[in-house]
Design a protein around this nucleic acid. Sequence first.
RNA 1: GGGAGGUUAGCUCAGCGGUUAGAGCACCUGCCUUACACGCAGGGGGUCGUGGGUUCGAAUCCCUCACCUCCCACCA
Length: 872
Amino acid sequence: MDKAFDPASFEEKWQRWWAEQEIFVARNGPRDEAYCIMIPPPNVTGVLHIGHALQSTIQDLLTRWQRMHGRNALWLPGTDHAGIATQLMVERQVAEEGGDRRAMGREAFLERVWEWTHRHHGNIRQQLDKLGASCDWSRERFTLDEELSRAVTCAFVRLYRDGLIYRGEYMVNWSPGLDTALSDLEVEMKEVRGKLYRIAYPVADSDERIEVATTRPETMLGDTAVAYHPDDERYRRLAGCSAVLPLIGRRLPFVADEAVDPEFGTGLVKVTPAHDPTDFEIGRRHDLPSVQVIDRRGRMTGEAGEPFAGLDREQARARVVEELERQGALVAVEEYVHNVGHCQRSGVPIEPLLSTQWFCDVSGMAERARMAVAEGELRLVPESWGKTWEHWLANIRPWCISRQLWWGHRIPAWYTADGDCFVAESFDQAVAAAGTRELTQDADVLDTWFSSGLWPFSTLGWPDETADLATFYPTDVLVTAFDILFFWVARMVMMGLHFTDRPPFHTVHLTGLVRDAQGQKMSKTRGNTVDPLELVDEYGADALRFTLAALDTPGRDIPLDPERMAGYRAFGNKIWNATRFALSRTAGAEVTPELDPAGLADPERWILSRFARAAADVDRRLGEYRFDQACERLYHFFWGDLCDWYIELSKPVLLGDADRPRVAEVLLTVLEASLRLLHPVMPFLTEELWQRLPGRQRVHPLSIALAPYPEPVDGWLDDGVERRMQALTEVVTRVRALRADLGLPPRERPRLYLDSDDPALLDWLLEHRALLAFLGRLSEVVAEPAPEGASRDAAGGVRLGLEVAERELTAAERERLASELAGVRQQIGRLEQLLANPQFVGKAPPEVVARNRERLAELESRRADLESGAGG
RNA sequence: GGGAGGUUAGCUCAGCGGUUAGAGCACCUGCCUUACACGCAGGGGGUCGUGGGUUCGAAUCCCUCACCUCCCACCA
């Protein structure tokens, strides 16, 4: 074995081998043996970023853990067609070649996208492979696969027949940048420094002028009313009157509407039903006409009249202001900071537009989704997301699901020449329903998230009743970042409840966002993004995985620090070298899974007990989705208990002439079990090392990935041994500290004096004098009070003295003793006060009182030592 | 305007009612001790954001304030 571990030398080998052995291929079988996680499908032409690496690590960790627990574990991989993102990418390409998608035509363009998709498909798998993902690639899915598309059509048709999908003209969020309608979620509110214009409108047949305020003067061209609040005394008199729209001359009726805030401005609002959501509602309530003055590309229409028609909305704004000013209708212009909706993808301001679109009425589904969390049928981890979930679902509005794009699932609706609409699963069925073949299919495609919402069951064969669906649905855990909680998670839950009557998973684990080492958000403009594959090359996949898992504290973002990752790479090296030591010093011994502690010496019983405890803790913490705590426990058990102590304790036997029963066997056995405990987090390294252990076949004939996850072994737990061994390690640590204070060179081997009020403990320590001598580099250990001149201390319930040559106390020693005495006195004072307090003694639990009494006794004994001039 | 989270060692974070508040990295001292210098041993370092309250006991529970993050929201 090489002296240092080199992840690059074996990671690829094992990923290939796992695939060849079909270790991650799940089978059909009983529902209760199955465990299933669906990957949040990344963009098919995309590249995995560090957030994907985090989520993949968690998903893989869970899947491997459950697989080792004997579950029929399926982690189903796949990709998303990502409508807008992919179409934009290819459009940009076409544009670079001087082309244009409209000029190309729908079919030619789609061919181009498919080509692009096929070329990039495979990237994602390669990347997941490098991370060690244990996906079942035989079940890989793509949202535009024939079967998944069939599921989408079926879902659409069913919702339509249930009356939950409908087509109609409503106010939508229109993106002039993308030339399509968007859902509310795709609109990003941004604070914008703009202007508030106050405009005077004359009251018809009077000399009076009223004043309205707007941030968008160009929309006045489409005004069809002026509104005030029904309770507003100031304007009731205007009922039945009209205002005259400047520049246009149209008469605008005054209407009273609750939506108006009388406190804002003058309490009068211009109403533009075609270009503002609130105004649209007011228009509906008062039966006002709509005048559309802005078109889909953000330009003024003919209705805007001369000289505005044809101008861009920004230009028109300036022009309108200019005209108003000229006519003396502009009363004031104020600086104004307000929120404006922007298109998440193209960045341009959203234009609220009246448009005919397909909508999904999700109110009923949303209520069920809300209840699922409220009643505990669906669990959010961390739970703090519950309120956000509740609030969003309680205030949900119809979902605009049609997009004026080409890349996606075409809406299964056909129109006759007369405009009659037939929604059907296929053209033929539409023909059958319509009674004519003269049908035109709806040009639009569905919101990408519509198909994503079906992902947990469409990937398993729904709407057919497949064996996969029976085995794996509902799935178990969904792991994703909180930023798509509504886009995706909520919609999956709504769709799952609607179509399958069950939530598609019982738990949602929401991870934080990966940030840089300073806690800054990663972004291309900041230039602080990291490529997970580069990290794999530099630190190894296992170190990256361990780092991500260890930092995944619930509800917190993850500051990814390269130095920390280097620390976990060092941990990998530690594991490597511990194994190297074990293999080189245990010739002839084998892993013995059912090891019985009877007949073993205390160090062996100790490490078995420590292992059993660690195994129980790690397993429990994984079950609580506390990957951070599980990792910390793994790290400290392996490095601290196993390497720092047990391997050292084994050396007198394995390297020297000491004799204790079955030490080699214990070391190999604990090492083997530890590798299994680590495997879900560090799959490559543990497989590489595990395969070298003699006797591993007794645990599993093929792979550590299929070996059982360590179960806590009650027979290995031993409190008594752990207590005694703790005294031993504490004594050793004190001895080493004394040596450091005294500046003793490593070669020097002083004698150690031990003395204790606990004769049993003292006897036991004496029995292990050889170990104490080895670990503390001592010449001998005797059970006598330390003589004059010895350097003294206390630890683990014993007084100890180190015999050193005639000398003065070193300054360091004197300082340490003085500060210790001061500390001891202070604590004694505190404890005496505490124990003298009848409230404490009366009310605190007896064991807490007892513990403090013991502590006080120890401190008093230590104080006596120190005061009697310990150290000579 | 609502809501969530944060403020603990130089940095990034654990701990969330009971002895002397922890980790990783960084720092200091001494060591290449035949598994590992990606290492070993020892060590320094914190009025746990502010002010109050509950309690025998608070970093931990409650309230106030301050400062940061983020999400949601049709006030023109």
